[in-house]
């Protein structure tokens, strides 16, 4: 596929398939289009030309409801961790369950467990503006996981946290990959990629000169 925006062409002849259970890093200089690429992957954008398929469905042929349903199978961790500031952390994390009509007690038991897993149990009633950068990142990851998605797309998930926290988040993502989840992380943090490669079989893709390339051994 190729994608352009008002400022010009961003990608040209990009081709990629995320195999189930795979682990990908997406890297490239700032402004190269990593965030746009992820948005194309979860149907927030439609490519200028070519085809994007989400779970084998062409995004152009999908209705808005189809895309909404597909997003329940894709956990997205945004760079800026979008939350609803008037809801508590627990309510924010439960939002995917709420909008998809999951009201079973089991789902909410999973929520408690998930909050414990990302270390946010004690912050359940806090409002998002009261959370630190690291807490917001972990909360965004927890929200992305609450529906037990097949794919996790994370955009700079360690962008606002210290080294220790970024390692902790990385460990969480590697654990999820071992559980069979497909992971793609957009990051410019090469240290994070190197750390991950010690623990997981990851492909590293680089966006360079409007193309997607497999990164070399320097990583």
């Amino acid at each position: 596929m190729a994608h352009s925006y008002s400022g010009g062409e961003l990608f040209n002849e990009v081709s990629l398939r995320l195999a189930p259970g795979s682990f990908h890093f997406l890297t490239g200089p700032s402004g190269s289009g990593k965030t746009t690429f992820l948005k194309l992957c979860y149907g927030a954008l439609v490519p200028s030309s070519g085809v994007v398929r989400i779970f084998d469905d062409d995004v152009r042929q999908m209705s808005r409801d189809d895309i909404a349903l597909a997003r329940r199978r894709v956990g997205v961790v945004h760079q800026d961790c979008q939350f609803l500031d008037h809801l508590s952390l627990q309510e924010n994390l439960a939002l995917p369950l709420t909008v998809s009509g999951h009201e079973a007690l089991d789902d909410y038991a999973n929520l408690k467990e998930l909050m414990g897993w990302v270390g946010l149990t004690s912050r359940a009633d806090a409002l998002p503006p009261e959370l630190s950068g690291g807490e917001r990142q972990r909360a965004a990851l927890a929200r992305a996981l609450i529906m037990s998605p097949d794919v996790i797309l994370a955009d700079e998930p360690t962008g606002n946290v210290d080294w220790e926290m970024s390692q902790r988040l990385l460990t969480l993502l590697i654990e999820l990959n071992r559980m069979g989840k497909t992971i793609m992380i957009a990051t410019h943090d090469l240290g994070l990629i190197r750390a991950a490669k010690n623990h997981v079989q990851a492909r590293v893709l680089r966006i360079s000169e409007r193309r997607l390339q497999l990164a070399g051994a320097d990583l």
Partner: peptide
């Protein structure tokens, strides 16, 4: 912003 977050987590337009 609220709508964007709700769409992000899989809310349908009708919801």
């Amino acid at each position: 912003q609220v709508i964007a977050v709700m769409r992000l987590v899989g809310a349908r337009d009708s919801y």
